[in-house]
Design a protein around this nucleic acid. Structure first.
Length: 394
DNA sequence: TCTGGGGTCCTAGGACCC
DNA sequence: TCTGGGGTCCTAGGACCC
């Protein structure tokens, strides 16, 4: 960990959901395949490369995909399968080093510096690529570079199944000619703004001479974007992020939209239930909960509440979810509902703050629970009452 | 061609504290 | 009667990513 020069791999599984389906059923390999939207609505999460030849891509609506490729085969999302394949992928990487930072279900940064220790990076990358294909039927692209940003850009350079090395000294010849929209972190809202400044390539961004104008569009991140355009990225691979969460959320699109309060509340309950389940599975407790909904014009409204404590209790989460929803509810169609918890803490790292009850004091666990619930309810009524009067001008 | 479901991080204003 | 400067936390919304 003390070498000045680091060698980072960014490994990206190609057309991941589709590749998982093909691993399960190899006959699908050469058939144009889309994952998601199998109800005939919605968008595709993934398209395999046979479908991409027709211009079909991820996030495309099923209608348009069908228009481009009428024979497209659609499969529903099989998330448990993808989780399993993802686990195989990261377990395999762990045979090299523990310096792995997952970036999503199908990609990760790996600091290979210590492992390589003089070995040829390109040969190792080739072995990783062929092992993943042979053992798990997972095709991938690999970027090799001295930092995370360059490694990410390198893995994008050739897809599918490419291996690309980005060096500091090739930044001007390989990175700079790339269009600005290819830069990781620059999205479709920012691109037109940058083009207005005459910035069309990553090189244009690197050499732009008016940082004040830039920061109008890039804010506090201006410096870091410009540094990245020069091939600099000091952010280390952070292995502690393995399996960690900043938030856990469940959302669902309703088509047709939900119309009434009761239907919406039922839907909200199901979402809250799942969130709580996942929270418990992850051994976490949350301090904040948020409810949001989207109307038919795609406008999203949200409301959030922070407890004075961390919790994973369904009654507490549901009480707040429902209350938040009540303050948001309007008699209008609801196209999407979402419940999410954040401000998470590992359960075993939390000290029990209040000893609410001592089971031994009570004749039965049931009575203990009843008493606790009524305490909690009183607590909530008080806090709601307080909140209700806080706008009072007196 | 209308727009899934899972996330992360940033921004800006306000409350509150010292 | 007017009112600094620094810091933290909270909230709503938005950009971006896969």
């Amino acid at each position: 960990m003390n070498k000045a020069y680091r060698i980072i791999f960014h490994i990206d599984l190609n057309a991941f959901f589709a590749s998982c389906e093909i691993a399960l059923n190899p006959a699908l390999k050469d058939i144009p395949l889309g994952i998601g939207g199998s109800s005939g609505k919605g968008v595709l999460t993934t398209a395999n490369y046979a479908a991409r030849k027709y211009g079909v891509s991820s996030a495309m609506s099923v209608g348009e995909a069908r228009r481009l490729c009428p024979q497209l085969k659609l499969l529903p999302v099989n998330f448990p399968l993808y989780k399993e394949k993802s686990q195989q992928f990261f377990d395999y990487l762990a045979t090299y080093t523990d310096q792995i930072e997952p970036a999503s279900i199908d990609e990760g940064y790996v600091d290979m510096t210590d492992y390589l220790d003089g070995k040829d990076a390109l040969s190792v990358a080739k072995k990783i690529q062929s092992d993943l294909k042979r053992q798990f039927s997972l095709p991938c692209s690999i970027g090799i570079a001295p930092n995370r940003f360059l490694a990410k850009m390198a893995s994008d350079y050739e897809k599918p199944e490419g291996i690309t090395v980005f060096r500091k000294r090739t930044v001007k010849t390989m990175l700079w000619p790339m269009p600005i929209e290819a830069m990781h972190g620059i999205g479709k809202k920012t691109v037109p703004n940058l083009k207005l400044l005459g910035i069309h390539t990553i090189g244009d961004l690197a050499t732009y001479d008016d940082p004040d104008k830039l920061s109008k569009f890039l804010g506090n991140s201006t410096e870091s974007f410009v540094q990245k355009a020069w091939g600099h990225d000091p952010t280390p691979v952070d292995a502690s992020r393995q399996g960690s969460h900043q938030s856990i959320g469940q959302s669902k699109t309703y088509d047709p939209p939900l119309m009434g309060y009761v239907d919406a509340l039922n839907a909200l309950e199901a979402l809250t239930f799942r969130v709580q389940e996942r929270l418990v599975e992850a051994d976490l407790k949350a301090k904040s909960i948020a409810v949001s909904w989207r109307d038919e014009a795609f406008k999203t409204t949200s409301k959030q509440f922070s407890f004075s404590f961390h919790t994973d209790a369904l009654d507490e989460l549901w009480f707040e979810a429902e209350r938040l929803f009540d303050t948001l509810f309007e008699e209008r169609p609801i196209a999407l509902l979402s419940v999410s918890v954040s401000n998470l803490e590992q359960k075993d790292r939390l000290v029990t703050q209040i000893d609410i009850y001592d089971v031994d004091q009570y004749p039965s666990k049931h009575e203990a629970l009843e008493d606790t619930l009524s305490k909690i309810n009183r607590h909530y009524q008080k806090s709601v009452l307080k909140k209700g009067t806080s706008d009072d001008p007196s």
